[in-house]
Every structure is written in structure tokens, then in C-alpha cells.
Design a protein around this nucleic acid. Sequence first.
DNA 1: AGTATAACCCAAAACGTTTTGGACGTCAAG
DNA 2: CTTGACGTCCAAAACGTTTTGGGTTATACT
Lengths: 371, 371
Amino acid sequence: MPVTLKDIAERVGYSITTVSRALAGYDDVAESTRQLILKTAEEMGYRPNATARRLRARRTDTIGFVIPTHGPRFSDPFFSELLAGIGNEAARWELDLLVSTRAPGEEELAAYQRMVTERRVDGLLVVRTRRQDPRIAYLLEKGFPFVAFGRSDLGADFPYLDVDGRQGVRELTEHLISLGHRRIGYISAPLDLMFASHRLEGYKDALEAHGIPLDERLVVIGRLTEQSGYEAGRALLEREEPPTAIIACNDLMALGVISAAQSLGLQVGRNVAVAGFDDIPLAAHAQPPLTTVRQPIYEIGRRICQMLIQLLREGSPEEPHVILRPRLVVRESCGSTRPKGGETDDAELQTYPQQTIRSIPNPVVDKGGVR
Amino acid sequence: MPVTLKDIAERVGYSITTVSRALAGYDDVAESTRQLILKTAEEMGYRPNATARRLRARRTDTIGFVIPTHGPRFSDPFFSELLAGIGNEAARWELDLLVSTRAPGEEELAAYQRMVTERRVDGLLVVRTRRQDPRIAYLLEKGFPFVAFGRSDLGADFPYLDVDGRQGVRELTEHLISLGHRRIGYISAPLDLMFASHRLEGYKDALEAHGIPLDERLVVIGRLTEQSGYEAGRALLEREEPPTAIIACNDLMALGVISAAQSLGLQVGRNVAVAGFDDIPLAAHAQPPLTTVRQPIYEIGRRICQMLIQLLREGSPEEPHVILRPRLVVRESCGSTRPKGGETDDAELQTYPQQTIRSIPNPVVDKGGVR
DNA sequence: AGTATAACCCAAAACGTTTTGGACGTCAAG
DNA sequence: CTTGACGTCCAAAACGTTTTGGGTTATACT
């Protein structure tokens, strides 16, 4: 039987109002009374009922996050890290985080609708935006607060943070070209994913800038999993004229490509170059270490969460449209001649100094009450 | 401005009570009235307010899950898959899932306390149990419903599901011994983790059964990350008398060991055997594919969630103590001579039919008679 | 003495729902 | 004509909190 304001009120002989106001730190309560109430509340182990508060405040102090999966499962380290970033930022502001995992489709949209219409959350985080993204269209139509990781082609305005994947892949591709590669395979993700088409553009940009004609047989579409990268990698490498380098549009697939190459007896970094995108922790420890394009995933999680909080608290994020520039990370998988075992391999300890991260005023100010 | 029962009541000219009861399907509402109300509610886009419902029902229809991390981040695919299992099962029952990520310690316990005392959730899932686990002690003391993944040494009874890690590692170790290995390195996790000490026992069991004396210099403790496995692997392999095989108590560290071995110019599967535990999706696609002990992570997530739901709905899970027997999965990393590229590599499609699920003798048998 | 001011306190309403315990009318049976 | 049963409906309470708009008392000032 949890303790309520009423219980305290009865015990101390004051009204519920007074107890509530004493606990909340209002100054229209005598100091002696407040002390008594504080002490009694402490003794009785009072903790306010979150649900009642929410009903009264017409706020849930909860944000929602639907993790996109392929099939029922997910084990993409990318989302793990994103989730950690979001979760820790939410915790800093004493917000709850409601999480679902759904494969794109009807059920996914239904999950959004449930959160919105039944007012389970105050705002939503939308990740992995898609062409004509129905989630975004829905939220815009409802006027429901959200922040997206990724842009859209809906032609509507909404707050987002994105990474310039086009630029990132362009740099990566140019790096490979500068190493002498001309036949560069590219493993994309389904093109209804915004980031997939952005990154593919970057690949095309680089080829064009260097006068290399696009060979469509070198471009295949994967499902973003390692398994899928493995299959796509084998398919590319078993062609009559195989590519000398392969770019996968995420690290997980790139790891699959490494695996595929090795299963064919190729030496990655010597016989074939492989590169990815994301810089998940596994990338640095792959054998050989994976050349990739780093996006600061954990920080991205924090920042989109921050933006959503600003949107919720102040009506709009300080900066509603943020594009981060990713950074090329050259490692051995594309045959670079960097010294091995260098200290920069220590990805876990790296921060992103080039990243400008604005701090937000101040998260939770404890007034000293029970609240 | 969301639609409430009151809005509908005003529109149709009936009371709030009648609207509520019509919507809820009670039979004390005239059929014609019900139709009108149903139609109007539909038109107006009525959806019940979850918070109000919860307050009234004194239930949150939400379960909580605190993901343990090391440091602020986490990217252990193990938890991703577990989360997916939990999340999908929760969704099936229309339950919300409240997620936090916390490193073990004070803040972690505070997260539990917050969920419990402020009644944010109806029940909790506790994973990666520890010696004298303070979370479990706390929940038991409060009498708060929870289900654990992993046993405890608190000497108290509570519902849990666990995998027999001792048996799993024992089989794994015996497999290596049968291949002729005598100097087998072992990378454990911190021993306050219950699963870590269980698995270590399995290792010792196997050595003892085969008359191999335990060499303590071959046992090191890692932090469960790939980075940590890499470091521990190097440390072991750079000894004067290096082990000929290394077992890591989870796959992520085993991947690090593979990386370490290769960085020293060793060929994994030929010069040194490496094995892990978990069978995360990456294990099958490592190069060489990783010998490991499979636990059906996704299913475990579903099941502990199921157990919690039973506990919440019926007072106790059907089977409050479940121990799953894991299965040895032999792949090339320990030098097996299995044909390569076999179809069984397709881990994503596999189910676990061979899983025998023993329940532990049940002291109290509910006869389910008349009361 | 009367009145303004400050200090302290509280009843009631509100958030949106579900449930309790009836009320009212009609109709059939006695 | 009375009684009981049935079919419909609803006022009010309850969940636990916060806020509004006061009220009461003592003190200080004219």
C-alpha cells in the first residue's frame, strides 16, 4: 500500500493541500510545519505517484522511440549505441523512455499511432527516415512533437539532425580512387531509406568527378545485416570482372564482405579493399581493421534527444536543422599503410573534438523537495 | 485537443457513464444507443487517455527493463536481441516497455527505485544477475513483481530463467580437450556476475574430469567487450608458454581474441583455437566462424517477458524456475574439419527445436481446486 | 479602536477514466 | 391494481496529484 499525500496529511494533521505545498517548496507554509511534513514524508517513505501527476499535468514526461528492425529481431550495434545515447540524455532530464521494436510496415505505424493518440508520450524520436516516410507524414498531420534522425523528401518542415552521408561516402570513394581503384563495388541499402540514397549519391559524385563511368552491375542492394553483406560480397567477388574495392553502406555489411572475401581466399587490404560506414565499435577490431566513415552515434542519440526536449520545453529546438559532417577513418581494410597497433585504435576512449556540441542550460535543478 | 468521453457524451446527449459503458461493451446499453455512440466515437476519433485509465485502474500496463552497460554506452548485440524479444512479447500483450541504460552502481539502483516507488511500471525484468544482487534484494524487500534472467546466491526464492552456463562451458571445454588441447586459456568476466562464475565452474569441471591441473595464469578477467577480449587475448598469447586454445565467456570477447591472435600472425583454427559463448549473429560470420555455445537470446527475452506477464496477471508464472540447456555449436575457429559453407550457417532462420527445457522440482504444487 | 498586512492554512476543482449503486419506466404476471 | 422483473440510463465516487481562490488569525500601523 504505497503512501499518499492523504496518508501524510492525516498523520500530521494538516490538509492535503498544505502537505503538497510543503513538499513542493512553496513559501506559504510555516517553516516548522514544513519540517514536520518533510520528516514525516521521509519516514513514511512517500514518493509521489507518477500517474496521478501526469494526469493532472497533462504531460507524460515520457518520450517514445520505435527501433526499426528487419524481421522480428535486431542486433545492429548501431541502434544499441543510439539507444544508450538517447536513454542517458533522457535520464538526465528525468524523462522516461518508452521503447518498441518494429519492422517497417503497418504494425510500426500502429505503434506510433498508439503512442500518439493515447497520449502515452509527450514526443517521439523517428530514426532511419524513409522516402515519403508515413511516420513523419502522420506526425506532421497530427501536429505531434518529434525530432527525426535523417531528412525527408516530403517537402515539409520539421526538426531533424542528419549526417552528411553523401559527403562521407564521396570522401571515402575518392580515397579509394586515390589508391588506384577503378572498379569499386557498392553495397547499398534499400533505396527507400533516405540515408541509403544519400550515400549512393556520394558514390556517384566521386565516380563522376573522376571520370569513372558508373557500372550498374557493381551496385547491389543489401539488407544492412552482416549476413546480407556476406551474400552481396560473394556475389560481387564472384563476377567475371570482380571489383578491386567494395564499399558497404554500413559497417555491419562491410564486416560481412570481409568475411566473404576471406572465405574466397582473398586477403582484405591486399587483394581487395573493403570499407564501411558508421564506425561501430566492432569496426576498429575487425581483422583487418575496417576503413569506414565515422558518425558519432552515441552523441547523435544524445543530441536528437536534446532537441526533442527543447522542442517540448521551449516550443522549438534551438537549431531545428542540424547536419553533421562525418569523418573518414582510414584503417587497414583498404590497404592503407598506416603503422599497425597505433594508439588511435582505441575507439572506445575517443571523443569527437571536431564535433561542436553546444551545452544546454541546466538539466534538473533539485529544489530540495521530494519532487 | 484530444477527444474525451465528455465530448462524446455532450454530442450524443447521454451521460459519460453510458458512453463509457457502451464503448466497453456492457449489455445495459440499448443497441441503438450503442451504435450511435460507437459511430460518434469513431467519427470524433476518440481514443481513451492511457494516463487516466492507469490512475483509475492502479495499473500502468508497463514493464521496466534496465539494460546494464559498461560506461555510458552499450553496443553488446546480446542485449539488442534480448530487447527485441522482450519488446515483441510485450507488444503482443499491449504492454508498454520502459527502458533505461545504466552501469551497475548507485545510479542503476536509483533507476529501479524510481520505477518501483513512483509506480511507473507494474513489474521489472532483471538481467545479468550478480552476487548478492542489490537489485534483487531491493525488489524482494519491496515485494515488487519481477523476473530475473539468471539465478542468485541470495538464498531467497524468486522467479527466474537461466541458462546452464556451467554445463555449456563444460561441454565446450571437453570438446577442446578432445581435440588434444591441454593448455586452455579462459577469459572470464568479473566474478560478481553470476553467469561468469557458473561458466568458470564449467571450465574447472572439465579440467578436473580430465585430470588437467588448473593453471591460474591461464585464467584472466575481461570486461565483456571486444576491446577487452583483444587485450586479454594478447596478454595470454604473449606469455612464454601460451595456451593452445582460448575460451572467452562471451562471443564479443572471443571476437576480440580472434583479432588479437591474427594481429600476432597466428591463424585461428590452426595455430590456436578460440571459442565463445552466446552465439550472437556475428559469431557465425566471423572469420573464421566462431565455435560457441548457443543460448537462444531472442527466445529468452520473450520467455522472461512471458513469465513476468503471468506473474502479473495470475500471481505467479506457470513455471517459476526455468533452466535452459545451451547447445555447443562447433565451427572453424577451434579447428574443426566441418565442411565449409554448409547450410546450417544460416543462423537467422534457425529455431531451437532440440532445446530441452527442464523445470526445477517445484515444491509447492497448486492443485487448482475449489476455494 | 479600527484597519491594513502578513503569515499560514485549506476546500474544492480539475485531470479522464471506470465502477458502484441505484433511479425510472414499461410490461407481464398475479 | 399491485408486484416484480427487466431494460435503460446516470450521479457520484474514486484513483492521487496540483492549483485556485480564498479564509482565518495575529501583528503592525493609523
